[in-house]
Design a protein around this nucleic acid. Structure first.
Length: 868
RNA sequence: GCCCCUGUGGCGGAACUGGUAGACGCGAUAGACUCAAAAUCUAUUACCUUUCAGGUGUGGGAGUUCAAGUCUCCCCGGGGGUACCA
């Protein structure tokens, strides 16, 4: 039995004592680097299987790259600010700092036994004054650049706790802790001008599709398509035209025209109505004189304000008494509706409707019997026709043009009339970073009655959080602190107050990957270190960060480039989003979640509750969560089966990007496999004595075809391919096949020479090392007894001439059905294949007495004989 | 609603540019070893039949092809994102 406990402890100690995973320095330009990074965890106190999966993926890549001779940067840190620390303070009186640091410590005690190759010397906790002090300096420099500003806008406000709540903390319109009805409150807060980068954030998505080859040495997918699409939608750029429709009747004071925004100016000739939002100034004016409009607006306001209710509400409109004139087609006037589906917040709060080419407008026109006039002759006659291929019709001077040409021409025309301007709108909003919370980075600003807002002088940084705070009163402890906020104005010396808002925790995670390159530098970042290590070559994390974190981090990189700190615009060359770790969940007949320890098998093999034998409903595998009681504790698994077994298991069976179904029996299978590996090693140690410097490789000419060494190289080649495409589960499957080949040779007692066997075993053990490092190191040392202790194993050098396949199996089909196979030399002449196939006895009976119409021969693959 | 992904044995999943479907693992069945159990090893494991052989099979239906899990069209199921964005 493989003594995994002692072996794993032994190797962890060796690695630790020898700083085996210290980040190497890059000395020459020929050094290849690889920066492997996993999204930094929040120190909640528990390491769960999702973390384990995330870090195992990163570690396999880091170790593989290291073995291949890359200089690898593989750091770990803690995203340590945030609300849970304050909630803990409220619940059990622990200081957020103590709570956070003790969680970090306990999580680290679970991570260390996994044998992850982190350079712990670079560990960062974002709540350290050192880290957030640098962050404050970046904030001030952004302020100097005009990228930070104060803004008045609406926030979720809990009137009992006197605090802003995040959207996630508003449940059914009530504060999650106080239960008070959350109100919208207008508040001054700090914003980052991310919209200034909207265009670049959007445009660069294109280049993120493919990772630049120089970072990996082979072509590889950059970012997953779905993440790129999500970011694109989030930024939501639309280019169009705002057009003024002259109001034909009535006097509305300063309002003489209705301005609408459109992305389809080419369809202006198809306009048959305009619609405005209930909150539009014109609607309010109309309501004063038109009781029908007023009643309609009231009716709309009865719909609950939740997004859910609004989006499912029926689309309704009310036809006002006024009409407007379409500037492109002034001989016609069209009616104006007040409509519940037009949003005041987007565009101008007014639209024109072209029913023939927009689904919603079409439905609206049918409902209110409005004209539907097609202006695009497209590839289909059914309406609405929303495609863009086609030619313009019924559109005066646009007739005959393509849609895109007409769009340009119509826009030019409207602009020449001064009836509108081209306009680009974005869905992306500036990033509000103020939080009325204690456990965050203090915003380094001072409010002075005389000088206004004054940044804290850089030499006074960091602005440290006070340790002595009370959570007994509601509201922001910083604001309530007796002394902390009172300072002198750095400019005029008059009494002034500190900003008591702290930064959103996404701020810390927006630049930690840069700090990781130079965690001990006196400056926020060190340009040379960034030039060396950035970009992150492989970034691994959950898809839930597809938009916010990854967008903010990209934004920061661009800003830090503009501030002169770094020489690149995009921080992450490749992004890998791993799937969730799921587990079977159980419920009783009342829907109460049951843990595995609360159920048992009954006589018929079904599950019942231990308590009372009530029936148990077995749910599908769901994401592990405390509430569903389907958690599996990683610590316990390492204790029972060892780190290597857990590592190899979690990388097996399922592609990394898909959800992973936990299965403790299969983990046991991985444990059995490692025991087998160990048993084989023990046998080999008895049988062979390898000289410690048996590094001379076997001459190719001395290796016989079909020998184990040739087989090992074939597997090495396939394993490399699998690893290069991040198909870790396939690499493990191939290793198991190779193990079987090795066992077969041992059983057969046949003949690889000593040096052949040495090379075979080096391949066999070294390719296992990224997955199961402890057992691999131990096995290697037992077998080869190197004179100096090794910290890592080098990746075996593939010998393509040995990996070359000499014999292939040819499939023989008759009329496309497989009837036989035979072996042939690779690349044998096609006519030979044909003859041999027809001569096979198993084939004769299918072709005897029939006319052969055709024979399809695919070299090295198959012969298909077509008869009759 | 729209967009994206996905559908292969009891289960997780393999299958390079269309070319032997089910690698590898889990589970299951039988056997060996054992006083017995565990561990280990061997064999079988898509389905059906008249089983030294043949037929059917990759959600369903059509099509292209000598050949379709793979390509095209239609339909159905599952998952995710997003939402009146003009």
């Amino acid at each position: 039995m493989y003594p995994f406990r002692s072996t794993e402890a032994k190797w962890r100690k060796i690695w630790e004592d020898n700083y085996a995973d210290a980040t190497p320095s890059i000395v020459s330009s020929s050094d290849k680097k690889c920066y492997v990074l996993e999204m930094l965890p929040y120190p909640s106190g528990k390491i769960h299987m999702g973390h384990v999966r995330n870090y195992c993926i990163g570690d396999v890549i880091a170790r593989y790259k290291k073995a291949q001779g890359y200089k690898v940067l593989h750091p770990m840190g803690w995203d340590a600010f945030g609300m849970p620390a304050e909630n803990a303070a409220l619940q059990n009186g622990a200081h957020p700092r103590d709570w956070t640091y003790s969680n970090i410590e306990s999580m680290k005690q679970v991570l260390l036994p996994l044998g992850l190759s982190y350079d712990w010397d670079r560990e960062i906790a974002t709540c350290s004054d050192e880290y957030y002090g640098h962050e404050q300096r970046l904030f001030i420099e952004m302020h100097e650049k005009g990228l930070v500003y104060r803004k008045d806008s609406w926030v979720n406000w809990d009137p009992v706790d006197n605090t802003v709540l995040a959207n996630e903390q508003v449940i059914d319109g009530k504060g999650w802790r106080s239960g008070a009805v959350v109100v919208k409150k207008q508040l001054e807060h700090w914003c980052l001008r991310i919209t200034a980068y909207a265009d670049e954030l959007l445009q660069n998505l294109e280049q993120l599709k493919i990772a630049e080859e120089r970072h990996r040495g082979y072509a590889v997918e950059g970012w997953p398509e779905k993440v790129l699409i999500m970011q694109e939608n989030w930024i939501g750029k639309s280019e169009g035209l705002s057009v003024n429709f002259e109001i034909c009747e009535g006097d509305f004071g300063e309002i003489v025209a209705l301005t609408v925004f459109t992305t389809r100016p080419e369809t202006l000739f198809g306009a048959s109505f305009c619609a405005i939002a209930c909150g539009h100034p014109l609607a309010e004016r109309l309501a004063q004189t038109d009781a029908g409009v007023a009643a309609f607006i009231q009716e709309c306001q009865r719909t609950p304000a939740t997004e859910q209710a609004q989006s499912t509400a029926e689309k309704m409109g009310y036809r006002s008494k006024i009409t407007v004139r379409n500037p492109i087609n002034p001989i016609e006037t069209i009616p104006v509706f007040v409509a519940n589906f037009v949003l005041m917040e987007y565009g101008t709060g007014a639209i024109f409707g072209c029913p023939a080419h927009d689904e919603r407008d079409f439905a609206f026109a049918e409902k209110y019997k409005l004209p539907i006039r097609s202006v695009i002759h497209g590839t289909s006659d059914s309406l609405p026709y929303v495609e863009l291929d086609g030619t313009m019709v019924n559109s005066s001077f646009l007739d005959g043009m393509t849609v895109l040409d007409a769009r340009k021409k119509a826009s030019d025309y409207i602009e020449s009339l001064s009836s509108g301007v081209r306009q680009t709108t974005y869905r992306l909003r500036d990033w509000s970073v103020s939080r009325q919370r204690y456990w965050g980075c203090p915003i380094p600003m001072i409010h002075c009655e005389h000088c206004g807002i004054v940044p804290v002088p850089k030499e006074d940084l960091p602005v440290k959080l006070p340790a002595d705070v009370s959570f007994n009163e509601p509201g922001n402890p910083l604001d309530k602190h007796p002394t902390w906020k009172h300072v002198k104005c750095p400019k005029c010396g008059a009494p002034a107050t500190r900003e008591t808002d702290t930064l959103d925790t996404f701020f810390e995670s927006s630049w930690y990957f840069l700090r990781n390159c130079c965690p001990h530098d006196a400056e926020p970042v060190n340009k040379e270190a960034l030039n060396t290590w950035m970009p992150v070559d492989v970034y691994i994390g959950g898809v839930e960060h597809a938009v916010l974190h990854l967008l903010y981090a990209r934004f920061f990189t661009m800003v830090l480039n503009d501030l002169g700190y770094i020489n690149l615009r995009e921080p992450f060359a490749t992004l890998m989003t791993q799937g969730m770790v799921c587990h079977m969940s159980y419920q009783d007949e009342n829907g109460k979640w049951l843990g595995p320890d609360e159920i048992e098998k009954d006589a018929s093999g079904g599950y019942v509750t231990k308590d009372g034998g009530r029936p148990v409903i077995i749910g599908r595998a769901e994401k592990m969560s405390k509430s569903k009681k389907n958690l599996v504790n990683p610590e316990q698994m390492v204790e029972t089966y060892g780190a290597d077994a857990l590592r190899i298991f979690i990388m097996s069976d399922t592609p990394y990007e898909k959800d992973f179904d936990w299965n403790t029996e299969a983990l046991e299978g991985a444990w059995r496999y490692l025991n087998k590996v160990w048993r084989i090693c023990e046998q080999l140690c008895e049988k062979y004595t390898f000289s410690s410097n048996s590094n001379d490789s076997v001459n190719v000419n001395d290796v016989s075809k079909g020998s184990l060494l040739a087989t090992a190289h074939k597997y090495l080649q396939r394993i490399e391919i699998s690893l290069n495409e991040n198909a870790f589960h396939k690499a493990i499957a191939l290793h198991r096949e190779l193990t079987r080949e090795l066992e077969r040779e041992i059983d057969a007692e046949q003949g690889s020479s000593l040096s052949e066997m040495a090379e075979v075993l080096k391949i066999w053990i070294s390719v296992l090392m990224p997955f199961a490092p402890h057992i691999s190191m131990e096995a290697y040392h037992q077998l080869f007894k190197p004179s100096d202790l090794m910290m890592h194993l080098p990746w075996p050098v593939l010998r393509p001439e040995l990996a070359f396949v000499e014999r292939v199996t040819i499939a023989v089909q008759v009329n496309g059905r497989l009837r036989a196979t035979f072996d042939a030399d690779v690349d044998v002449d096609t006519s030979m294949l044909s003859e041999e196939a027809q001569a096979l006895s198993g084939i004769q009976k299918f072709i005897d007495g029939k006319v052969i119409k055709n024979i399809v021969i695919v070299k090295n693959k198959l012969v298909n004989i077509v008869v009759e």
